[in-house]
């Protein structure tokens, strides 16, 4: 009990300030965070079945969810185009081969190059990219929350869509890329609004995959949020106890630390995995 009091509460043994808030202790905690991150990186690299990422994303699910969004806006459904899907697959393969995460490759290759190379002569074309998501709903929702990606998904200029989902190593990390390409062929008229149009693709059964015990993100999130909440709680207790005991100290302001760490904790709690460009 005395150790807990010494560590987390203002007491005469810690000069009326929780030991964990002392600069020396903060340095120790900083070191622990670094060690933890290095350990997570090593374990996820050596034992991906224990600490790794698993994604269950089928291209057809992306199409279905995209069309659901379009139909909710009174737009016609897009059709899955094999040539656009082939272009998306080549783009994903190129990103892994050249190790980049961008719409334009380091060699300057534009997305449209892949579309044309796949034999799809376009009048309009667009591309959305996502990585590190574990399920299709999160991917589509992230795109819908981004104005530029949302514009692509809900554009009435497009009639076709191609999707590729590919696993590989990007920047030294195992990841899942989702490439979504939109297009309207030369000579085709852009899509017009049509309420209640049918889906063109039926949902497919999602095959079960062997998932790791947990992901590095989940583990890091539990660790990070716990640490931030612990510090915020200790600081709040510090403010209350010091004020109640009318203690006079010459230190930094615990209430200010509390505001700052509480805001960061809130951001950490609500952080969701996955990147889009």
């Amino acid at each position: 009990m005395s150790v807990i009091t010494h560590l987390f509460l203002p007491h005469h043994t810690n000069n009326q300030r929780a030991k964990i808030l002392h600069p020396s202790s903060l340095l120790v905690v900083l070191s622990l965070v670094l060690v933890f991150q290095m350990a997570v990186g090593k374990i996820s690299y050596r034992y991906p079945r224990i600490l790794g990422y698993a994604s269950v994303i089928q291209p057809v699910q992306i199409l279905t969810l995209t069309n659901q969004q379009r139909q909710s806006q009174g737009l016609p459904a897009l059709e899955l185009d094999p040539q656009l899907s082939a272009a998306a697959a080549r783009k994903a393969a190129d990103m892994f081969a050249r190790d980049y995460w961008s719409h334009v490759s380091p060699a300057g290759t534009q997305p449209w190059t892949f579309i044309t190379a796949a034999g799809y002569s376009y009048r309009y074309a667009g591309e959305n990219l996502a990585r590190d998501f574990s399920d299709p709903d999160s991917v589509v929702q992230a795109w819908m929350n981004s104005p530029s990606h949302r514009e692509n998904m809900l554009s009435n200029r497009y009639r076709d869509m191609g999707v590729a989902v590919a696993d590989g190593n990007l920047g030294g990390r195992e990841t899942t890329l989702v490439v979504q390409m939109f297009g309207t062929r030369l000579g085709q008229a852009p899509a017009t609004a049509a309420v209640g149009s049918a889906f063109t693709v039926k949902a497919q059964e999602v095959l079960p995959t062997s998932a790791p015990v947990t992901s590095p993100f989940t583990l890091t999130k539990i660790f990070s949020v716990s640490l931030l909440v612990l510090f915020a709680a200790v600081l709040l207790l510090d403010v209350v106890i010091v004020n109640r005991r009318r203690l006079v100290r010459w230190t930094s302001k615990s209430f200010a630390h509390f505001i700052f760490l509480a805001v960061v904790a809130l951001a950490a709690i609500t952080l969701i995995r996955g990147q889009i460009i």
Partner: peptide
């Protein structure tokens, strides 16, 4: 650092 490590793994 804490938020950064979370971003690295996100």
């Amino acid at each position: 650092l804490i938020f950064g490590t979370l971003l690295i793994n996100s």
